[in-house]
Structure formats: C-alpha cells, structure tokens
C-alpha cells in the first residue's frame, strides 16, 4: 500500500465516529436553516466556509435578525475563542504541513482537534497526509450532513434523540487512551476538575450559567497549568 492510500485508510477508520456525529448534528443545522427560508445550498455554503458546529447554530439566529456585522463578530469570538487554545498545542505537530497547513488550521473543529490529541500511530508513514485526510474527511461529513438536513431533513421522521452522545463517548475514549499513554495525570485531572468547578459555580450563581462556563474554564485550566509548570515538567521528564 502506498503512503497516501495508507494515510487515507487510517484516517477514514479513525473518523467513523465523527461521521456518525457530524451527519446528524449537521442535519440538525440544515433543517434549522431551511426552516428560516434559505434554499439548501446555503447550508452547503455555510458548512464549507464557516465549518463550526456551535457557531452555525448561532448563525441561524444572526441571519434571522437584522443585518449587524458587529454582533456577528462579537458572537463568533465568544463562541469560538476556545480554538485559540487548540492551535497553541499544535504548533509543533503542524509545523511541517506545508501546503496542507492552512486547510488543516481552517478545519480545526473540536472533534478534529480531539483526534489530533491522540498519539499518531507509529506505522503511519506520511503523518502530514494523515492529518490532512482526517481534516478533509471530517469536513466532508459535515458538508454532507448540513446539506442532507436542508434537503430532506424536514420529510424524515427518525428519532435521533441521544445521537449527540457520540461526541461525548468519543471524547471519553480519547481521554482513556490518553490516560493510558502517560504516567503523568495531573494535566488531565486539572482539565476535568478545573472545568467541573467552573461549571458548578456558574450553574449555582449565574442564570443559565452552563452556557458561559467554557471560556472561564479554559482560562482557569490554562492558569493552573502555567502555575504548575515546574512540578509537572519534573514528573514528565522522569
């Protein structure tokens, strides 16, 4: 098998859970946009250019309102600023991507990022192509899901309640894999308990607080990792 084929095949197997998730979550968006009076190709267009799940749901709200670019910018920053942290941890992994780099950065969704967080299998001969195909396949699933939702979503009655759990399960599996890959569990624990603490505080003290806890959670976790740099690094080098 040549290296391109190998990269393609491995990337496809790895992205199957995301295919399930994206087809349905994308379809949800497609239905919503179609209901707002937009022909189906608008869903395709959004999926191709924006390619951000949570933001496209907000986009439907924005399109329903008056034309207001400042609000669009502010909302996008609020919803997607977490992505800054993703890039920060991929500087090294993405440094030799060459022609694929811009596209892989463009396609850095939560789910694609979570796959990038896994250790790249040793047998992959061309890692750059592997990263590229993961990004490309995920994007294609999303475009397909959004488009199908807008075209046929309204006519199909299928109880997909709970399908979004596929992402939770995927993140959890990656968490388990990561846990087994290292003896240093402090960063993982900081992530879980830092955000849990933030979530509990926001749910108690802020009306509808669970909507807003993510960015403070990222900040707290980032700060904790910064303060714990010395002891964590000492354990990492053992």
């Amino acid at each position: 098998m040549n290296e391109t084929k190998q990269a393609m095949k491995s990337a496809f197997t790895l992205t199957i859970p995301i295919m399930c998730g994206y087809l349905f979550l994308g379809a949800g968006f497609g239905v919503l946009l179609a209901k707002s009076g937009y022909p189906f190709y608008w869903a395709t267009f959004s999926a191709m250019t924006v390619y951000s799940g949570s933001m496209q749901y907000v986009e439907v709200d924005l399109l329903r309102g008056a034309f207001d670019l400042l609000t669009a910018v502010i909302m996008t920053v609020a919803v997607n600023v977490r992505h800054v942290f993703y890039g920060l941890s991929l500087i090294d992994k993405y440094k030799d991507l060459g022609a694929y780099k811009l596209y892989c950065i463009f396609g850095l969704t939560d789910e694609t990022y979570s796959l990038m967080c896994m250790k790249t299998p040793e047998y992959i001969r061309n890692k750059n192509k592997f990263y590229f195909f993961i990004t490309l396949f995920d994007h294609l699933y999303w475009i397909t899901g959004c488009t199908l939702g807008a075209v046929i979503g309204q006519y199909i009655d299928f109880n997909a309640k709970g399908i979004d759990f596929v992402m939770t399960a995927l993140f959890f599996v990656i968490f388990i894999e990561q846990w087994e890959s290292t003896k240093v569990h402090i960063p993982a624990l900081i992530g879980v308990f830092g955000s849990l603490l933030c979530l509990v505080l926001f749910r108690i003290f802020v009306q509808g607080g669970s909507q807003f806890f993510l960015i403070p959670a990222m900040a707290i976790v980032f700060l904790s990792l910064t303060l714990g740099k010395k002891p964590i690094e000492r354990r990492l080098s053992r």
Binding site: V192, G194, F213, A217
Partner: peptide, 28 residues
C-alpha cells in the same frame, strides 16, 4: 524557535482540553 513555554503547553494542553470537552458535553 518556539518558546519553551509553548512547547510545554503543547505537551499538557491536549490532556487538559479533552477533560474540559467531556465536562462541556455533560454541562446540561
């Protein structure tokens, strides 16, 4: 050259962020 601090974050952030994403999925 990439600053040492960023190299460090590149090592530890993926572990922490997956934890955050799980909590995020379960937020409601």
């Amino acid at each position: 050259p990439v600053p040492k601090f960023i190299t460090y974050m590149g090592k530890v952030l993926p572990f922490a962020i997956i934890g955050i994403l799980i909590v995020y999925c379960l937020k409601d």
